[in-house]
Simulated assay, not measured.
Amino acid sequence: MPLPAQSQENLNSHPAVPALSAAQRSNLFPLTAAGYAWWRQRSLRALGADYTLEREARLFRARCSPRAGQRWLDVGTSAGFYAGVLARAGCEVLAVDISAPMLREGARREPDARIDWAQLNMERSDLPTGAFDGVTVGATLNETRGPAALLRECARVLRPGGQLWLMYLRRTGGPLQALFERPAAGGLNFPDPAWVQRQLPGLTRTDALAVGAVQFERYVAGAASSERETL
């Protein structure tokens, strides 16, 4: 499902889509994209969660069980971490990001024919409704200016029974979060898990795990309520 590339500056031209945050704009630079995989490998430990990418990948595979023939959407793919995990499981993947340099870096690091790369803002995507078996969102929720809109779009594109996997920094009320919420310091947002759950009324949260300030969650479209508090 390859999509045509869009200008980085017109991805938010629709009045319903907020302007890019400072954190999002920083991702438009080639230097940021070149160093992102290095940061992603170390970011959870730096944020107080002793979790490697290998453990994160195992956790995701154990709870979501991606398999060959499924169609997944990787939102805010950056350097393609989740896209690569999915492709190696045999899935067809549409990896989207607002940043052309990030997409080029992801395609360089994950040269798999099962991955299509597309420049797209998931706050208003125009992707077909019910088109995907699963959606992954790795930390993009913290950077977007419209987290509620992004979550609604992720839910909309899931087929009945489809899975949504989230990794994000949850609200702790700490001084560093207050600093990085300021527009000049990044304009990040740190959602509370209860708030996230309210934005997904048609999905059921089945799994939740807090590791330091990092939150991992799995939702299923139309599933009966049965949540595991530990993963």
Rank of each mutant, 00 (worst) to 15 (best):
A107T: 03
R114G: 05
D97W: 01
T129I: 12
N121R: 10
V93T: 07
L86I: 06
F132H: 07
V96S: 02
I98A: 11
R109M: 09
F132G: 01
L94W: 00
A89S: 12
M122L: 03
L103D: 10
R124L: 13
V135W: 00
G76Y: 12
D126N: 05
E105G: 01
N142R: 04
L94Y: 02
M122W: 01
G84F: 07
D112A: 12
D133K: 07
F132E: 03
V96T: 13
F81D: 15
L120R: 09
D133C: 02
S78E: 12
L103V: 07
S99K: 13
A107P: 04
G84E: 10
D112N: 12
G106W: 00
P111R: 11
A95K: 08
E105M: 06
A107I: 03
A131W: 01
F132A: 02
V137W: 00
S99I: 14
G106F: 01
P128F: 01
F81M: 14
G84V: 06
F132V: 07
I115D: 04
T140M: 15
R109D: 04
D97F: 04
W117R: 02
T144L: 05
V93W: 11
E92M: 14
V137C: 14
W117I: 05
L141R: 04
N142G: 05
N142P: 01
P147A: 02
E92A: 15
L120D: 05
L127R: 00
G76N: 10
G138Y: 08
G80H: 06
R104G: 07
F81L: 15
G138I: 12
A95I: 06
D116H: 06
E105N: 08
T77Y: 05
D133Q: 12
L86W: 03
D116R: 07
L120I: 10
R88S: 10
I115Q: 05
I98L: 14
R88C: 04
I115Y: 04
D126F: 03
S99W: 12
V75Q: 04
N121Y: 08
L127E: 00
P101I: 12
A139E: 14
P128I: 02
A131I: 01
E143C: 15
G90D: 12
E92N: 14
L94K: 01
G106M: 02
D97E: 09
T129K: 14
M102Q: 12
Y82F: 15
A131F: 03
A100H: 11
L86F: 06
T77E: 03
A118W: 04
D126L: 06
N142I: 03
E123W: 00
R114M: 04
R124K: 14
Q119D: 06
G130M: 10
G138P: 13
V93C: 11
T140V: 15
M102G: 11
P111T: 11
D126T: 02
A83E: 13
L86C: 07
G76D: 10
T144P: 13
G138E: 11
D116Q: 09
V96Y: 01
M102N: 09
D126Y: 02
A79D: 15
C91I: 11
V93E: 08
M122T: 01
V75P: 01
C91R: 07
V75D: 04
G84Q: 09
